[in-house]
Design a binder for these strands. Structure first.
Lengths: 201, 201
DNA sequence: CCTTGTAAGCGTACGACGTAAACTAGTGTG
DNA sequence: CACACTAGTTTACGTCGTACGCTTACAAGG
């Protein structure tokens, strides 16, 4: 996971992993069926790092806490975005996580249909945000943003994309703009919407 | 793109593509700098298939139309999810798309900050939903779901994940439950939230 | 007509990658 | 002492992206 954290899933190779462990690549196959199996295990480890919602506590606080935790964990393991939900063999932490989320919603007075709705919006948003942010071709630091944006737009005629340019100059390169803050806005907007729809208990 | 549509990005190889075109693999490098460049071009083609929002029209209708179109396009090109926003060299359709979305929001009376908020939530949700749905380890058909779910839970003690089991049996395997329908729910929830926050024009 | 420049495509080759198969030590247990 | 088990190694195969150098096809200019 350290290797993947640093350079992405692509830099995690069996040979490289073996070398990092002081062992030949093939030795790994004593402990792991194949690379996909290894990634299954890694994904489950990532799930185990996510804070579990507590059934019986305030659902809104718990759901918010979980979403923030997912985002924080995925920001430490950016390789995991895009691979978390695609496993054909979910591990125990994965299943426990889903079980806890559903349990917390049901305990919070949701019926099954509303729980499914809530889970779907929250998860889609949280993973989607993580994905778009992780993949953003610039990191923190407005100098970086400005430079990257200029390089992207260079091949095209000036004034071809006026709104986009306005957005970048007026907003995205503002030094006290942090894209990460956007997450809170959308998260609360969605929680508000869910709270409004939830049948009163 | 036909190749990737069928078997995912992994089955698109330079040799395979050459063969499909009746040409040696290396011939492709006359037209494309490298594989990443090829994928850049493919991503831009995907963007070009997305319906553009019209500036001046009702922003809510346009945003909804766009989100639905994104989802539809991504469902035809499932390989593109996870790669759309990560390109270091966005093409003209990509930039035009972003420009149109921002333009439509600004024309709809949003200030730049609210436009950024709206764009962020909508995009994160739309991509996130596409990602989780595309990657779901089961396709359509409840028989499939039931079978897959049982196989996933088999290695674990019964009653280890009661809420998850309840969700699957009560809800997910219901024959008239289509996960795709969840998209509409979340989309309208988010649009409602945005409409509420938008400063009145 | 011939030359020459350019675009298109081909052939070969290299160094990754995941992993199958067979083998070799070291470690207990009967 | 024999035996099975475990962890690790060696070698090898097929596939990938792609660097490098070669060969055509063809159009423009003298």
């Amino acid at each position: 996971m350290e290797m993947a954290d640093e350079g992405g899933l692509a830099t995690l190779t069996m040979r490289g992993l073996g070398q990092a462990l002081g062992v030949e690549a093939m030795a790994l196959y004593r402990h792991v069926a194949n690379k996909s199996d290894l990634i299954d295990a890694m994904v489950d480890l990532v799930f185990s790092e996510i804070e579990l919602p507590v059934a019986g506590a305030d659902w809104r606080i718990e759901m918010r806490k979980r979403a923030v935790s997912v985002r924080e964990v995925l920001s430490r393991h950016h390789w995991a975005v895009g691979v978390m939900e695609s496993r054909r063999h979910p591990g125990p932490s994965n299943l426990r996580h889903h079980d806890a989320v559903i349990g917390c919603l049901l305990a919070g007075g949701f019926d099954m249909t509303m729980a499914a709705h809530a889970y779907s919006v929250l998860d889609s948003y949280t993973y989607g945000f993580a994905q778009t942010q992780m993949n953003l071709p610039f990191g923190a630091g407005s100098q970086d943003v400005q430079e990257t944006a200029r390089r992207m737009l260079t091949p095209f005629p000036v004034d071809e994309y006026p709104n986009l340019v306005a957005f970048i100059t007026d907003h995205a390169t503002n030094p006290d703009y942090d894209y990460g803050d956007e997450f809170q806005y959308g998260l609360d907007l969605i929680l508000d919407g869910i709270a409004r729809d939830r049948p009163r208990a």
